[in-house]
Design a protein around this nucleic acid. Structure first.
Lengths: 203, 203, 203, 203
DNA sequence: GATGAATGAGTTTTCATTCAT
DNA sequence: TATGAATGAAAACTCATTCAT
């Protein structure tokens, strides 16, 4: 009967919000910017979200969902730890660039809204699993700290990578990401696959 | 009405700005909040800073200077690498809590992230030095990647720690910092002091 | 999707408008509220009324018509003045409660008060008639002021009753109306039926 | 030190609000109208009142206070009931015209009626006192209903007068008020001063 | 220097009205 | 006819900045 709800509009709003919130943060972003980016008027946004805060939450959650689903689907496929980790790194860094706005957007109101913390925990748990001993692999995993401590360290590094990438200037984005990726690869190789890695750890 | 001529007023403004910007970010902070926190009126702030943006920059730079000077002074004292690293960790984590507002202030507003980048580089360079081979120590440093790559990884981890701490809820701040510190200690012990750490790196 | 062709839709809109305008006044009422109350969409209202203002007028007039017709039909039946007055009071107060939304709707918006004035005049005229001497009754009517002046005073009291009832809180509505009714009964008894009421009037 | 708070501005705002709210009701009145009427900008109103609602309340209360204080001061002066009543009528009707905006302002918005109720009660109590028996006057007061019932009836009539006056068109305001006043005078003469008024009332 | 009242541009939000389906 | 998404004008409210004192 009525004009059908423009099937792409919701996505266009979320997309525009994703970019704009990401570039400028929550407060600095105006609804008009988001609306313009989606090709509609500011008032129309209110046909889809009751207020700015709700739109922000929806944007962040939608972004994470896309990211996570993809990551989790990948987790289950491969039997060997080395392969899983390689794919993780490939996927993770591939996604990093398009996800930059999201990452920035979350950092900027994350504490207030507590949107980032649980997602980060979820992600760290997934990654930690990838580093757990591989039954079919007699080789020792180098990183034998307790699961809990490993997860903390993973959270530090994951967020460190995200924040570092979020920091880089747009122009040198590509190169910077490559640099970080390379450093991470070496680092993981040293940490994760060396049978003789840790002759002695701290207590 | 007016306070007695106050030599520390500039500092009071910076202090109030430090806390308020840190808690709420740039946009969400009002000049009145800062002024009230400094015990003056909003209009008086303009006797010291031409506008809000300048005040923010001055606040961030002042905060980093305090932090850095302290850290650098420490660097030069100790001859043995292990000691230097230990002191670095002690000092760094000690400062983390009072510096949280600053860190948040920089992280949580995209347009102001550029203020963080150079400071972070400066900090990473200092830390990287601490991990360089110790002439007076015949033991091998485990982490032998190129200086450049090591610095990247340090930047990732440093920012990772900062961001993780910035994320935590005020109530569990203390405990969260301790957890991260503990994980870091173990991690460093494994990475930095194992003579046989890296039989082979990635290609 | 759409309701079956509904002969009573117009009435449903008017009914919903009656209640909603009455509860909230003209400005505070949204077309969507009225439409929802009538079980249709906001846009559909425009198939029946060109704009909000017209809908309001129609609502008020419709409400008064229902009220008046009922009252007038009653007027003509009874021969004795006392009986007519008694029925007037019964009917009037009976209707007061359901009519409250309408009354409020007219009272609560100055720009719409002009809708009330003529209806009030009409009502006062009817009531004034009820107090005119009863040919079949040799007793003197107490209230012998000029017809014009009596009508003014009736208007004052009628509107006073309406406004007082409109004022009362929903919870104590029943009791408050009863109190007013009782005071009115006594008052009328003293005023209207005392043969010796007015030995002298003011100058 | 600072620009002194314009000593008349608060009153100018209240005055402008008084008129504008009175003419148009709460919802239909915009802050800009009030501000313009007071010769300032809309934003400046917020230096005096935190929001529209507070301004409305302050306006109504201020208006009633002016009205009441005047009325009460008059109450205590005169010893004879007839004189008191005469002065009441004079004062009341004198004030009616300038108070019209206030009356409308309270009547015209259901959610704000509660502001009227207690003031009306207060006023009715004062008036009721004026009709109580005069110790120095051997003449009987005609209106001998219970104090409570008399007060109800007074409330009806007072509000009736107020609402009727609020209803009248601006152009015929003067004449309409005079008409009502005249009817009231006659009415009171008949009711209040006739020793033989009520040979029999209802129980 | 210090003050804080005043400003006005800018922001979020509301809602009567239109119109493609 | 009915729908409800889209509009855009207008509202309430915020706040950095100015400036008379």
């Amino acid at each position: 009967m009525s004009r059908p709800r423009d099937e792409g509009l919701m996505d266009r709003i979320l997309g525009s919000a994703f970019t704009t919130f990401g570039d400028q943060g929550f407060q600095a972003t105006t609804l008009k910017q988001i609306a313009t980016g989606a090709g509609i008027s500011a008032g129309s946004v209110y046909n889809y979200f009751p207020d700015k805060e709700s739109l922000f939450k929806a944007t962040v959650e939608h972004g994470w969902d896309v990211f996570m689903v993809d990551l989790e689907s990948m987790t289950q496929a491969l039997p060997r730890r080395e392969d899983r980790i390689k794919v993780l790194m490939d996927r993770g860094f591939d996604m990093l660039k398009p996800a930059l706005p999201l990452i920035r957007g979350m950092l900027f109101e994350a504490s207030r809204l507590k949107l980032l913390q649980p997602q980060l925990e979820r992600l760290s748990a997934i990654i930690s699993l990838l580093f757990s001993p591989d039954p079919g692999d007699p080789g020792e995993a180098a990183w034998k700290d307790s699961e809990a401590q490993r997860r903390v360290m993973i959270r530090v590094i994951v967020l460190g990578v995200m924040a570092n990438v979020a920091l880089v200037d747009g122009e040198v984005e590509e190169a910077s990401i490559a640099t970080i990726r390379s450093a991470m690869d070496d680092f993981i190789a040293a940490i994760a696959f060396s049978a003789t890695l840790r002759p002695g750890s701290s207590t």
